[in-house]
Design a protein around this nucleic acid. Sequence first.
DNA 1: CTCCACAACTTACCCGGTTCAGTAAACACT
DNA 2: AGTGTTTACTGAACCGGGTAAGTTGTGGAG
Lengths: 337, 337
Amino acid sequence: MKRPTIADIARRAGVSKGAVSYALNGQPGVSEATRQRIVAIAQEIGFNPNSAARALSGASARAVGLTLSRPARILSIEPFFMGLISGFEAELAARSYALTLQVVATPEQEVEVYRRWWGERRIDGVIVTDLRENDVRIPVLQQLQLPAVVIGGPGDTGKIAQVWSDDAGAITETVRYLVALGHRRIARVSGLPGLLHTQTRTRAFNDICAALGLTEALTVPSDYTGEEGGRATRRLLIGTERPTAVIYDNDVMAVAGLAVAQEMGLAVPGDLSIVAWDDSPLCSLVHPPLTALSRDIAEYGAHAARELLAAIDGKQVSNVEAGTAHLTPRGSTAPPR
Amino acid sequence: MKRPTIADIARRAGVSKGAVSYALNGQPGVSEATRQRIVAIAQEIGFNPNSAARALSGASARAVGLTLSRPARILSIEPFFMGLISGFEAELAARSYALTLQVVATPEQEVEVYRRWWGERRIDGVIVTDLRENDVRIPVLQQLQLPAVVIGGPGDTGKIAQVWSDDAGAITETVRYLVALGHRRIARVSGLPGLLHTQTRTRAFNDICAALGLTEALTVPSDYTGEEGGRATRRLLIGTERPTAVIYDNDVMAVAGLAVAQEMGLAVPGDLSIVAWDDSPLCSLVHPPLTALSRDIAEYGAHAARELLAAIDGKQVSNVEAGTAHLTPRGSTAPPR
DNA sequence: CTCCACAACTTACCCGGTTCAGTAAACACT
DNA sequence: AGTGTTTACTGAACCGGGTAAGTTGTGGAG
């Protein structure tokens, strides 16, 4: 089948290509009557502008890029990214931007992908996740002047917009809640230590524990996988002075931690309370259901997409906080025995 | 920053644009010495061909499309799709094709997206998941002559290539295994009944149960969500003649089913054996770990991507079976008490 | 020495939109 | 009536690659 072009429309409407272009883009330069006639013809023959031609003549590519830099085995089970993607999509589809995805292994590869995309003019902007300290991607994006939005700060990203949620506030609330229940030995199994938001959480965790006089606040670094989360939990629970509550940096590790506790014959929440960060259906469907730090991840993604589209439109955007995760108590937390 | 173009390379190399194009694409028409000089310059200035220009001049867009047609709440937790995406990516990245993603709500919307992508010349082909009976997408793809690969057959897709795994064989093996353990009352919680592979599984399940003389083989339709899976499980377990084993069509429902059993005071696997379809880390990290039907989903995706790229290259492709899921026994299956 | 074949290029047009400069007609204003 | 100004267009250049057709230059055969 042949794709209809504006030349086809122009011929049928008896006008020039230029007039068709003005009419379809809502530009001034054609009369209302002509515009309606042209739009009707476009509708009728099912016209869609060739995105390549459009991108080539200076306009935008109407696409944004997202790189995912976790190994496949983590990506497949981590609900966070799919939630994020759904959120992006809702916003992007509304403005008919496409989302281009690439799975990468390292930040260096990610930089390569950004350079390639930029050179290919394939995308108008990128969404950057998992901000690190002195992130190598930031200077590259600035150099290329590629519109971007960073998720996972707050951090130093210069003029690049950020969307973040108040992790410090959330963890503070959680520790206060556990202490109110009577817990004194609270541990934490964290995500990848290189990520900025992990560091933010760890700092806030240490601060609030110190403020409340908890001397044994311990953070065990992990990597978001269930296996590692389970191992970290086992290590925490074999000590003589085992914690009575553990906070996990994602839901997958929390579920794994729950399984380890059950396997070791500990009652949850009687012997051990568990809190998961990032609520997902996963938390509700295990037994007992997990107390979790909930936030609307899709909305978080939608927010980021809106900021990115604004940046692409040339609007100066600033750092935006997208809302704090709030504690959703379920069956996995209780006063210690 | 200005993007380098072939004109820049041509100027620096002292040749014409055409020569550069021939050199970079490995076409005859330039001497080996000139080619190497041109390639070196391209390398040096970090040249990437503008994908829009390339797509416009008749060549391919070097991108393929994937639509995901499940609600966000299912997508976020279902490990299958992320595994599939990782698999695609591995293959696509190797040939530097981009993956364009769109989340849709209905098959009709999906068709709209295909039409738009085709009109925009944004993609060279699409990957179709969740094949249905009399799928509305198939005739559209044939009409548009858009290269495609279908995942989730086997079904009637005319000339469009299919990649599928032998679900009937897998479920037969599973039922035989459970019967060998001594189970006689085996139930199944299925995925969306409209999907062709769900129907394939149901038919095979009924057939093998009949062949083995199991009269109470019951399939309860569900929708892949944990909530629905849990509800279906509860309905199965409140009867007087409750099943001693349940097979779930995905891991999420299986985990939910496990939680329901635990909540109802049933021991797994003592009172109830559980089998999950599609192994994911999720199955190993609950307690007890779930016996699952494993297949390499990423490889499944990679396979599909290879077929699609072949179809785009104009090679005639046929239906391919991508390997059967095999039973991985873990702690959730045992002889009934 | 002439002619031909072929390699190694160059030239020019194509793809399908966007956009700017130009133009003719309609209209307003003095 | 004559002079701007505005409206509604047209025509052509342009984006950056791909490629068919044309042009050189070189070497070998006769």
